[in-house]
C-alpha cells in the first residue's frame, strides 16, 4: 500500500500518540521513544504498509515493538560490554522518571517483562496498547482463535515473573499481584 501525503499525515496524526506510548513503555526514555516513533513512520512512508496486512495500526505497532526490542538488545550488549571493560564513558543517560517515586515498581515490571519470551512480552504490551484480538493475531501471525490462550499464558507467566522480580527488589515492589 502506498498513500498520498494527505493520507499519510492523517495516519500519522491518528496513530502517533499510540505508537509513542507503546514505545515509551518498552524503552522507558523519551528521546529513544521519539526517535523510534519517527523511525516507525519513516518506514511507513518509505515502504508503505504491505498489502497483506490490512490493519495499519497493527502494522505500525509491530514495526515499533520490533524496533524497540532491537534497541534493548543492542543496549544490553553495550551495557555488558561496558561492564566487561569497566568503562565509564559518561554516555549512560539517566531517565528522570526512573528516579521518581515508583522507580522500584517500574523496575520490577520491566524486569518481569524482560524475563518473558519476547513474544509473550510483546503480546502483553500490544494488548495493553489496545490492539484487538484480530489485530494481535495479525501481528504475531496466529489464528485469532489462539489469541485468548496465548494471552492467558502470557499473563500467568508475567504474574510469576513479577512476583520473583518484586522479591528481588527486596520486598519493595508495591504491585498488587
Amino acid at each position: 500500500m502506498t498513500c498520498s501525503e494527505v493520507e499519510f499525515d492523517a495516519l500519522f496524526l491518528a496513530h502517533y500518540e499510540g505508537v509513542y506510548r507503546l514505545l515509551y513503555r518498552i524503552v522507558g526514555a523519551r528521546e529513544d521513544a521519539e526517535d523510534l516513533a519517527q523511525e516507525t513512520f519513516l518506514r511507513l512512508a518509505r515502504h508503505g504498509q504491505p498489502d497483506q496486512e490490512p490493519h495499519v495500526r497493527a502494522w505500525l505497532y509491530r514495526v515499533a515493538t520490533n524496533l524497540a526490542y532491537n534497541l534493548l538488545r543492542s543496549e544490553g550488549r553495550r551495557q555488558r560490554r561496558q561492564q566487561a571493560y569497566g568503562a565509564a564513558n559518561g554516555e549512560t543517560e539517566t531517565d528522570p522518571i526512573e528516579i521518581a517515586a515508583r522507580q522500584d515498581e517500574r523496575a520490577a515490571v520491566r524486569r518481569a517483562l524482560a524475563s518473558l519470551p519476547e513474544r509473550q512480552a510483546q503480546l502483553l504490551l500490544l494488548r495493553h496498547a489496545g490492539l484487538s484480538y484480530r489485530e494481535l493475531a495479525a501481528v504475531i501471525g496466529v489464528a485469532s482463535g489462539s489469541v485468548g490462550t496465548l494471552l492467558a499464558r502470557a499473563e500467568a507467566a508475567f504474574e510469576k515473573a513479577y512476583r520473583a522480580a518484586s522479591r528481588e527488589e527486596g520486598g519493595r515492589g508495591h504491585g498488587t499481584m
Partner: peptide, 9 residues
C-alpha cells in the same frame, strides 16, 4: 493486576 503493572510504565 497485569494491567495495573503495565500502567506504571
Amino acid at each position: 493486576g497485569v494491567a495495573q503493572c503495565l500502567t506504571t510504565l
